[in-house]
Design a binder for these strands. Sequence first.
DNA 1: ATGTGC
Length: 476
Amino acid sequence: MEMALLEKISDYCWQIPIQGKMRVPVIIYGSEKIIQAMDQKVAEQASNVASLPGIVKASFVMPDAHWGYGFPIGGVAAYDPEEEGVISAGGVGFDISCGVRTLLTGLQEKDIQPIKNKLADLLFKEIPAGVGSHGKIYLDKEQMNKMLVGGAKWAIENGYGLQKDLSRIEEEGCMPGADPHAVSNLAKERQAKEMGTLGSGNHYAEVQVVGKIFDETIAKVFSLQQGDIVVSIHCGSRGLGHQIGTDYLKEMVVCAQKLKIDLPERELACAPITSELGKRYLGAMRAGINCAFANRQIITHLIRKVFLFFFPGIEMPLLYDVSHNTCKVEKHKVNGQLKELYVHRKGATRAYGPNQQEIPEDYRTVGQPVLIGGSMGTHSYILVGTAQSERLAFSSAVHGAGRAMSRSKALKEWKGKEIIRSLEEKGIIIRAVSERGVAEEAPLAYKDVSDVVEAAHKADLAKLVARLDPLICIKG
DNA sequence: ATGTGC
């Protein structure tokens, strides 16, 4: 990114002042090194986002941002319905409610060492992964609608998990206001066989060891200790979310044209929050959130079954489950006034600080766990939300490393087999459906997640709690 | 991200 175009506010905060059609400034969080390496396109896209009607405060860019479809990935933007604010399918992203869930195991690394390969094999066998992967579950129309309304709650009622899991999921695993009738039949058909599947790309299920604790006090509240084994799931709403995105993007292009909303780029298509289309998208997108909650809940059940085989009686409670592709209605302070805003987080994790009613009671004194998935073979991190983040970025933080290299370039650079072998030498077992997928997801095709979380920490968006090191990674 | 792409 061209640093000359930015005004430095602090070591970890930079600004693009209002210019052209921008209604608010762009605020970018990150070190000089991170922002220098960011694509210039991110600045353009974030400025475009700042030009849409009803945006308040600023168009925010997280340290892990990269070029996305219309809105940058790693972007946060809030729109006010009372100021003709908009909602945008591209501002949520195609993988609606993609997110991370982490399970505690109570095991230590030495417990899994003797069975590591067998554990990897069985996890790989039991968790369907890959493009177009199907599970054993088939939902008819009636069950589909119930799932889209009930989310993880529906999954638990149908035998996939424990009632107490719900208290550790954002929205308690069931997003209110979901409207299955706003979801196309095509989207539902695509999803019918995809419940409890991982998908492809950077999605994974990973067995990890807590490699480092940054904050002992908060780690204790999160039940994390050095050497503990945890399991993390990174996936979203599969074909359903993607089809909702595709369907509504088309409609929003037409809507924006009709209402003469000035779009710097077609891909910024949006609809007024108060419009019929805006409300319908919100209902469909919320159904997508429930689909992702249910999906991660079913995968949790599959993982627990595998662990129970090796460790009879094991309990695997949730640490937390949080999304990083959503639009949510939240109250935030703008110019000293509490406003109800539509907060788009695309590749940005909600990161509530202490004393928020929305987070589990056990965590309320310290703040919400902010789960940051790394790329294949690299560290992941657990952070905690801060009080400052509300003012800084509507309580949001980073979501992961972010690509540094295109998929096609990664394919030219590496072979899947070589990547798997070199990770094996480091003691990391990869079980993947596609060798091509492994090459595309090569560790060096991603930015360094450690830099990104350090920047989030130093910018006060969220605070470092623990580092997770991969042992077994199941991929599409 | 995606029944991967014009």
